[in-house]
Design a binder for these strands. Structure first.
Lengths: 217, 217
DNA sequence: CCTACCGATCGGTAGG
DNA sequence: CCTACCGATCGGTAGG
């Protein structure tokens, strides 16, 4: 074994850097993340770290890629066993809430934090953040439309409206968890989602009989 | 007139600084705001600017105070003419959506941006942000409860749940406006709010007849 | 992967 | 309100 590291070692180092960078970025933001402090945390030099990415912007893009992979594993894959359409939609939303409830990223949703930081700064990072959000919302929309096709949602359901409201519920959840440490927020989010998608918990929420005729056959 | 400025002049200068600081903070965040660039924007020296506040943290707290005053004027006061309870709640929500639609802060909701930045950083700024959010949500909750008392919402309405969902809708609106420049988002937000509070637009949204029995008498 | 360094900028202070 | 300055830290580079 020579002191020169192999390609595999370099890849492993890169993965370790990105794991730590995701944690820090969820807490401090993608821009609040600095190369110097990240390197110090990892016990390596700034230039040693930067060598893996080339620039801070490239590091930020790599962090977004890595975080997308985490989201795919912790949310999308967990719902993969259910049939497309309403079942998948419900499973995706449940996994999404669980993702925040479990605190997969210690500082809350990295994408939400990145969106707030970069929404007014044109460039590759903003484009990447917007693309991640667009792809996820399209993914949800696809299953809303499938649910409509299957007759599980009314024929004239506005899929964009449903996704808009789902996003809102989860943003409110992230907000309540991060700012107020409100442990009841995940239940509130699940109730809101169930009511939006199925009217299932409307009875518990407002005293109405379960099921709004027309929403759920 | 001596070259030494009066107390009134100093107060005016402070107000001008805070106006510009609010604009920049809504775009760059409360921490992204730097004394040097803010001073350069205003054509004054860093130390001249810092003399009005003492430290960056004090400037951040002053910006939050000033932004609260803007919110009180642009949202709360606009709904002040309507009776407490359901009417006021609807007017507050409409003014809230309008506040974002009109772009009162050029970079979107300063409070949302500040919450994302400071939710993981204990200290006076985080406390101020959390306090502003808590007061606003309590304000909304008060009118939800009044609406229940008046019989405009069901007796077992969970006021915290309603406020949680209202916050989510407006967070989704801010998100859609800032990240996607989605001009239809304000209408989506109004639809979602109306459906949440009154079931009024449920017919347009999902084909149901207007009014869910029990939600709105 | 390191040390050693660069110019720029940060928040803040001294002194007037 | 200014100029002039402080130490610290930023992203990044040179050279090995």
């Amino acid at each position: 074994m020579s002191p020169r590291r192999s390609v595999a070692d370099a890849r492993q180092t890169r993965a370790v850097i990105l794991d730590r960078a995701m944690e820090k970025a969820s807490i401090e933001g993608l821009d609040g993340l600095t190369i110097g402090r990240l390197a110090a945390d990892l016990g390596m030099s700034k230039s040693g770290l930067l060598g893996h990415f080339g620039s801070k912007e490239s590091l930020q893009l790599a962090v977004l890629d890595a975080a997308s992979a985490v989201f795919a594993r912790e949310v999308v894959a967990r719902a993969g066993g259910t049939p497309a359409g309403m079942s998948r939609l419900v499973a995706l939303c449940d996994a999404w809430v669980s993702f925040l409830e479990r605190g997969v990223f210690p500082g809350g949703c990295l994408f939400t934090a990145a969106a707030a930081e970069f929404d007014d700064r044109p460039g590759p990072v903003r484009d990447a953040v917007a693309g991640i959000h667009a792809r996820w919302q399209e993914h949800l929309r696809r299953h809303v439309r499938q649910a409509v096709t299957d007759g599980d949602l009314p024929a004239d359901t506005d899929s964009e409206q449903v996704v808009f409201e789902l996003v809102g519920i989860v943003l409110a959840l992230n907000h309540a968890l991060q700012l107020n440490n409100d442990r009841r927020a995940p239940e509130r989010a699940r109730d809101a989602i169930a009511r939006l998608l199925c009217g299932r918990l409307l009875s518990e929420y407002s005293g109405l009989p379960p099921g709004i005729p027309g929403i759920r056959a």
